[in-house]
Design a protein around this nucleic acid. Structure first.
Lengths: 329, 329
DNA sequence: GTGAAAGCGCTAACAC
DNA sequence: GTGTTAGCGCTTTCAC
């Protein structure tokens, strides 16, 4: 077995209590004693057993994150931020992938709740009641979703959509199609809300299609339906769908952006690499991840939470898939 | 506080020991008692505290995975498989992202080792001595890297490279350039080994360049150097680099595959979506992840490990970036 | 300022 | 089959 606090105590000729104090509240112990303990600990390569500590303090030093799909760069972007910030704060992070399945999501959340100090929920699907129930067991922070009384790290999708509409309107577009992502997802609702508001304000036509699966195949599928409505611009729920749209349009000999403009959402790495490069909205993924961790830890330290919901700005990235509409349209 | 084993014991009118048994070794307890305990547990929503259990069994029910970069789809593909298999086996998974930094990697590995039953190491960088040291603390499984005495889930990169060379040779190529990834990485060594073997066998010229960072920017940078050597085909260390190469060649007006063929490695989702779609080698990412978990759990259950190193097949995916070389070459 | 001792929630002998 | 009890490694009263 590994080296325990007793070993250190023996080595430093003090009691285990003193070792414990020297490590967690150094000012409670005389400097000379402290040094003796610390050097003994270092020499033995002692590292406290977190499980044992957690058993008594009620803190595990772990936090969790639940995501619907680890193959989706959106979530790994967030995860990366979470991971980085957690490490700084000396927390470990559990990750759970629900495979887009709601039941699994709920089950994972519940299982995780037991062994962490808090969990970051990136699950568009899971329903409010389940979340509140989980919130009873452990601290929650929502990511990109608003839930009353629960802190959240939000990316302002609505403003991103507004930027898209302003961009398109400025180019001369008057008839837009929006390809919906999952109806129940908070992101989709927000994007849609921003879109509706902006199109109304500018008095341009908005046709809504879908919902479609928020994946490449969803874009392929949506593409033909979109074209049939004869818009001058197609606004996809996210980049991955937009890439599907792009591919399908290319197959059909429809030129982007000459015949029709296309926009994505997320600014995945590959949005810049496709051809033509995709006009999209950049999401502060890692920033949202670190923010989520901060909110979580704040809540833990201040005791009761103030349930802050912080909005992070998104930004339109104009690339090659948007241009003025064709004359004939 | 949450509901404990005592609560269940009281509710079911038995001792805590019986509750414990009913849950972990059901056959040691009379069916009627067991049912009583189980229903009491269900009613109270009892779930055992893993930390407490771990304290005594020495098993945590957790396993960890260390990766260099969560934004790299290669690693998240593996992670996805790990996660899925772990959940089936009722294990939770810790994830650690080292940001490609060796020191961080070692530190994360050590920190993780304390609170898991085993860790899956996807770290090309970290050196052998460090790994052996970690192997002393916890069980290790290597991913895509061979380490004597340590089980490993391997993807047969060498055979993938052989398939690339055979494909190119069949098309008529005689002068190939390889863009090295990180020199120290096992993957790069393997790919290079397969490449050298195959090119020698077929008597074609192989020029090696690099190492380059295994990212898009690395591809951009490598591209010009590669072109200067006037090859008919460029073999990139991985897809991301290949995408960089593709972009740079397009900028310079060099046509792929007419002027030069390009191959990637990994078959990331976006390899199929770029234009032209990338000829590459598909890696069994998720399969490797699940295999790694199986190896880990096998090792834990059988006590001593047989240090199996299992090879998974890779497969050439021919797409649009390879064709016969130009006549003049 | 430091030590002794009481647990945190659980499992594993050991009794009966 | 079931109950009693002794810890797992640690923190935290409570004495001194």
């Amino acid at each position: 077995m590994a080296v325990t606090i007793r070993d250190v105590a023996r080595e430093a000729q003090v009691s285990v209590a003193t070792v414990s104090r020297a490590l967690s509240s150094p000012d409670l112990v005389r400097p000379t004693t402290r040094d003796r303990v610390l050097s003994a600990a270092a020499q033995l390569g002692y590292q406290p057993n977190r499980a044992a500590r957690g058993l008594i303090t009620g803190r595990t030093g772990n936090l969790g994150i639940v995501v619907p799909d680890l193959n989706n760069p959106f979530f790994t972007g967030v995860l990366k931020g979470v991971q980085a910030r957690a490490r700084q704060a000396d927390y470990s992070v559990f990750v759970a992938d629900s495979d887009e399945d709601r039941a699994t999501e709920e089950q994972l959340l519940r299982a995780m709740a037991k062994q962490v100090d808090g969990v970051i929920v990136c699950s568009p699907g899971i329903d409010d009641t389940q979340l509140y129930e989980a919130a009873g067991i452990t601290s929650l922070v929502m990511l990109n979703r608003r839930l009353r009384g629960v802190p959240a790290a939000l990316m302002n999708s609505a403003s991103g959509m507004r930027q898209i509409v302003e961009h398109l309107v400025a180019l001369g577009h008057r008839k837009l199609v929006y390809l919906n992502g999952p109806r129940t997802s908070w992101s989709n609702k927000e994007r849609r809300r921003g879109l509706r508001l902006a199109t109304q304000q500018h008095g341009v036509e908005l046709i809504e299609l879908g919902p479609f699966p928020p994946r490449y195949e969803g874009g392929l599928q949506a593409s033909d339906l979109a074209v049939a409505t004869e818009p001058t611009a197609i606004i996809a729920y996210n980049d991955i769908m937009a890439l599907g749209v792009l591919a399908r349009l290319r197959d059909r000999g429809i030129d982007v952006p000459k015949d029709v403009s296309v926009t994505g959402f997320d600014d995945l790495m590959f949005a810049a690499l496709c051809s033509p490069p995709l006009t999209t909205v950049a999401m502060p993924l890692a920033a949202a991840g670190t923010l989520a961790v901060d909110l979580l830890l704040d809540g833990l330290n201040t005791g009761a939470s103030d349930a802050r919901q912080v909005d992070l700005d998104t930004q339109l990235i104009v690339r090659g898939t948007t241009s003025p509409p064709p004359r004939t349209a």
